[in-house]
Simulated assay, not measured.
Amino acid sequence: MKRWFRRRVDAVYEDVLSREVSGAPTHVAVIQDGNRRYARRTGGNAPDGHRAGAETTERVLEWCQEIGVEELTLYAFSTENFDRPDEENEALFDLLCEKLREFADADRVQENGVGIRAIGEIERLPDRVQEAVSYAEARTRDHEQFVLNIALAYGGRSRLLEAARDVTAAVEDGDLEVEEIDVKTIERQLYDQPVRDVDLIIRTGGDERTSNFLPWHANGNEAAVFFCTPYWPEFSKADFLRGIRTYEHREESWRRTRARRAMALLGALGDADLPEARSVVDRFRDSLPTGERSALDDLEKRERPGDTDGVDAGGQAAD
């Protein structure tokens, strides 16, 4: 009876969250933490936990597509994970090979246009994993409706370091001028194919850190972060929707902050020739509370001293 009641409560809560969510982030990145701890708690071993986590991964992909997420990046294996026992890693590599091929061939992946990519130092992985990666990427190469990035042998700091070295080498070889280096230059060096800025990072398992994950695309975009306690195999749709709600609240706060900063700039300088500040205020006007919108209207009236009620600056009666 208790288990039935708990499932009923969870279903109702999930329904409430679904109705609260009004917009989806474009790119969600997930740190899938807790597989091994889940296995220990349930009396299994590490491979059992990884296999249970793989089932959660499939569900999360479905949830992302349901609400309109366009890109999902999963932190499947970090460079630090090479330090784990060989037998554990070998079992994980076998699972990766199995799931990459299985997933690439799945009807739902083919029908929904899911493009699978691997990011990281793939050359450090065993040959069989590299072959599975190549198969999955080739099988879904023409798919552009949804992007699934699998971070394998990945370390954010090492990727930035390699990009910096590549740019330096290009300058030394005369292929690139220093003044030509910009954001897009670095991004082209980071990955073979474009990766969108990250809007939301989700981490399961209770740790509150982002673990060197996509620093350029997440920190540079001031991504929202959602930490939750369930181990990855236990991660539910309600947990996922709570993460999306965190993103929405973060986005609303960001929009208000941008509008208030632009308002402060306009108010301090009183200069009608501040097109950037004006465009920010106009773009985010609806994000401000009603009282602040009234203050903005008053500010704009003061900036048009020739205006009078009912008469425009040219002396014509208002329509």
Results as ranks from 00 to 15, higher is better:
residue 119 I to D: 06
residue 209 R to C: 06
residue 248 E to Y: 02
residue 145 Q to C: 10
residue 211 S to W: 03
residue 11 A to P: 06
residue 210 T to N: 03
residue 243 G to L: 04
residue 282 D to H: 13
residue 80 E to C: 00
residue 200 L to R: 00
residue 262 A to Y: 00
residue 175 D to K: 07
residue 251 E to F: 01
residue 296 L to P: 00
residue 97 C to Q: 02
residue 281 V to P: 07
residue 236 S to H: 05
residue 49 G to H: 02
residue 268 A to F: 11
residue 243 G to I: 01
residue 196 R to G: 11
residue 235 F to G: 04
residue 51 R to A: 09
residue 242 R to S: 02
residue 25 P to K: 04
residue 220 G to D: 01
residue 52 A to Q: 10
residue 13 Y to M: 15
residue 44 G to S: 05
residue 182 D to K: 10
residue 126 P to N: 08
residue 124 R to V: 03
residue 282 D to C: 10
residue 226 F to E: 01
residue 305 P to T: 00
residue 133 V to C: 02
residue 287 S to E: 04
residue 161 L to H: 11
residue 317 A to K: 10
residue 236 S to P: 02
residue 76 A to L: 03
residue 70 E to T: 09
residue 235 F to W: 01
residue 164 A to G: 08
residue 239 D to S: 10
residue 118 A to L: 01
residue 46 A to K: 08
residue 314 G to E: 15
residue 279 S to R: 09
residue 83 D to Q: 15
residue 238 A to L: 01
residue 13 Y to D: 14
residue 117 R to Y: 09
residue 63 W to Q: 01
residue 201 I to T: 04
residue 79 T to L: 14
residue 248 E to Q: 09
residue 94 D to I: 07
residue 87 E to C: 13
residue 193 Q to K: 14
residue 257 T to S: 13
residue 198 V to K: 07
residue 100 L to P: 03
residue 4 W to Y: 12
residue 72 L to G: 06
residue 272 A to I: 12
residue 132 A to E: 05
residue 304 R to Y: 09
residue 282 D to S: 12
residue 277 A to Y: 02
residue 307 D to T: 14
residue 113 G to D: 06
residue 56 T to M: 00
residue 29 A to R: 01
residue 113 G to M: 00
residue 286 D to M: 08
residue 215 P to N: 03
residue 164 A to M: 03
residue 150 I to V: 12
residue 14 E to A: 04
residue 45 N to K: 15
residue 184 K to N: 15
residue 122 I to K: 11
residue 82 F to Y: 05
residue 292 E to L: 08
residue 269 L to M: 13
residue 173 D to S: 13
residue 254 W to V: 13
residue 43 G to H: 04
residue 61 L to P: 07
residue 26 T to M: 11
